[in-house]
Write a protein that binds this DNA or RNA. Structure first.
Length: 577
RNA sequence: GCCCUCGUAGCUCAGCAGGAUAGAGCGGCCGCCUCCUAAGCGGCAGGCCAGAGGUUCGAAUCCUCUCGAGGGCGCCA
């Protein structure tokens, strides 16, 4: 409907321009929904845009435009020129009925589209290495990535959710050694390092205490989960592993345990990955070598100080970077490039990487090198997400994996529930900091909690529909519902809001910004609850059967949109609360 | 020093392909259930949109600079 109006306005503008002999670029005429109700259902800024070109006052042009547009094939009830030259339009009532009819007919798929044309798109996120349980930063990224994936699916893309990990290298060795150290400590064969030395890098690291060696590595993993794993191993094998090297069974068991834990966590969040991509496979199938020689063939590689460098300055980037260390071992950069080449070769039109702010620096290098290697118009995109702080009262605690006090996703989900967790993690724009308000999230007075507010609105409406059934007011059967009784201003406003949903969903998908969805839903719920509350003026289930049926249809429309929105967020939509 | 992100109500944040009186939640104050879910609704208070310039019919939104917060600038990942 908005599209119809837009094309009517565009046509009118073109007509005026032609008359004046203008031959330049077309203007981007835009229809928007005005903030204020007094400004009609839709408004258009065309007259102001063109005024400069036509050298006449905008209001005058606006008048001329309105004459050309007329009723736009019976779409428009009334129109006016307002303010500096806005065109304001009021639509005919039956136009709104059409919107509602659409919603009821489409149900779950209302708001979805096929702009993606079933093209393949990939979202890579979380991608935490199995060195510890997921932190809140990972949790945020998990929810964000999953919501972006849901939005893209809704927009008609064929989406792959992917998790990239690296279970080799130094960090995994340190992990194994950390577990072994704790194991030896349990057996009384080693002494734990002093707290003070763990906290302060400048303090000396003791080799032994009370004749017991300190085995725990200086940069070891300090979390409690390490001791848990060591305890389990001890319970199962007793002293048998004393001679076992840290990077052997210890490393392996730790990795398996931790990875299983990570999968449990993502499962509990309702996130399902299609692909787990192991960095190691790039070594095994020769992709690393291939990538290196391909870069070399393009003259992008040189040797210096015994290392192999990427000429990234050629891409206009800050500096050149090492891809193979003098030890012969690749840096993270090379496999990362190889990985992205592999992604593009798998035929995705767009590859979206979610990355924490601490990885921002590397992305341009990976992108530039990969695009140099792969022809085609497919794209690599970055969605940056900043850190999470957990706030309670006046205390704000920054969450980092290093710190001993860091809270895991599992712990927070246990505290507030999945739905609240998901909403809170997704309701800020990705690139902004996120202050997780623990007090509000775990609010026992649920009236204050925004997650429950949305769900309650859904449940409340479902309840009304149940009551309608009970009273014999049914939408099914009895032919199409006559919607003409919906004539109140509030009702038009609700339908107009419902009509915005497809646009909001599309915009959120296109900008990779899921947070628009909760804001939209909150607004929708707001006007709907206001409507429901004023039961003295308009009850849904009243004496007039025809009016009641129409209003139940409105309720169902509301619940459909609310449900579709919640589903985009991966939240439950309860029928009862 | 250089780069990225962010500065909007007491707090946490929307709004930023420029648009008509700047929004929401939480917190504060005042009201509203013989009525389909009050897990709700209405109202009040609270703002030089960090600051200064510029671009134009029009700027919270675009450009430049300053200040402030966070992150990054390894042959770590």
């Amino acid at each position: 409907m908005k599209e119809l109006l837009e094309s009517a306005c565009t046509l009118a503008v073109e007509k005026l321009l032609r008359k004046s002999g203008y031959r330049g670029d077309p203007f981007d005429v835009r229809i928007e929904t005005p903030r204020s109700k007094g400004h009609g259902d839709f408004s258009c800024n065309a007259a102001m845009l063109v005024a400069n070109r036509l050298k006449s006052p905008p209001r005058e042009i606006a008048e001329q435009l309105l004459e050309v547009i007329g009723s736009a094939d019976g779409l428009i009830e009334r129109s006016e020129v307002a303010g500096p030259g806005f065109l304001n339009f009021w639509l005919k009532g039956n136009q709104w009925a059409k919107v509602l009819t659409d919603i009821l007919a489409l149900g779950d798929s209302y708001g979805s589209s096929n702009v993606g044309g079933k093209k393949k798109i990939q979202v890579e996120f979380v991608s935490a290495n199995p060195t510890g349980p997921l932190s809140l930063g990972h949790g945020r990224q998990g929810v964000l990535g999953d919501c972006i994936a849901r939005l893209l699916q809704f927009a008609g893309y064929q989406v792959t959710r992917e998790y990239y990990f690296n279970n080799g290298g130094r960090q995994m060795r340190v992990l194994g050694e950390s577990v072994k150290a704790r194991y030896l400590e349990i057996l009384g064969l080693a002494c734990p390092p002093p707290e003070s030395a763990l906290k302060d890098q400048d303090l000396p690291w003791p080799e032994s205490i009370d004749d017991l060696p300190v085995v725990f590595p200086r940069d070891g993993y300090q979390g409690n989960y390490i001791e848990d794993i060591a305890t389990t191993i001890h319970e199962e094998v007793g002293e048998k592993f004393i001679e076992e090297p840290g990077e052997g069974r210890f490393r392996q068991i730790a990795e398996e345990t931790i990875f299983a834990g990570i999968r449990d966590t993502t499962d509990s969040l309702g996130i399902v990955f299609d692909v787990y991509f192991n960095e190691k496979s790039l070594y095994e199938n020769g992709k690393i070598e291939e990538t290196l020689s391909a870069l070399s063939a393009l003259g992008l590689i040189y040797k210096k100080d015994g290392a192999t460098w990427l000429k990234s300055e050629q891409f206009g980037l800050e500096r050149d970077r090492v891809v193979v260390k003098s030890s012969g071992e690749p840096t993270y950069l090379l496999p990362d490039i190889a990985y992205h080449v592999d992604k593009l070769e798998r035929g995705f039109v767009t590859v979206i990487d979610l990355q924490g702010a601490d990885h921002i620096d590397q992305f341009p290098y990976v992108k530039a090198a990969t695009e140099a290697l792969v022809d085609g118009d497919n794209e690599i995109e970055l969605v940056l997400n900043q850190f999470v702080t957990l706030r309670s009262g006046d205390r704000s605690v920054k969450q980092s994996t290093r710190a001993a006090n860091f809270i895991t996703v599992d712990e927070l989900v246990a505290e507030v529930g999945v739905d609240v967790f998901r909403l809170f993690m997704v309701q800020r724009k990705p690139e902004g900091h996120l202050d997780f308000d623990l007090d509000l999230a775990s609010e026992t007075d649920w009236t204050k909690n925004p997650a429950y507010y949305l769900q309650y609105t859904y449940a409340r409406t479902a309840g009304i529909e149940r009551e309608a059934e009970k009273r014999g007011i049914s939408l099914s059967g009895g032919g199409p519902v006559d919607l003409t009784p919906l004539a109140l201003l509030e009702e038009m406003e609700i339908i107009r809001k419902l009509g915005e949903f497809p646009e909001v969903a599309l915009m959120a998908a296109g900008s990779r910004e899921p947070h628009h969805i909760p804001y939209y839903l909150r607004e929708l719920a707001g006007i709907w609850n206001t409507y429901l509350q004023d039961g003295k003026r308009h009850r849904i289930l009243g004496d007039d059967k025809e009016v009641s049926r129409a209003r139940v249809a409105l309720a169902k429309g509301l619940r459909t949109v609310m449900g579709n929105g919640l589903s985009l967020l991966g939240m439950n939509a309860p029928e009862k609360m």
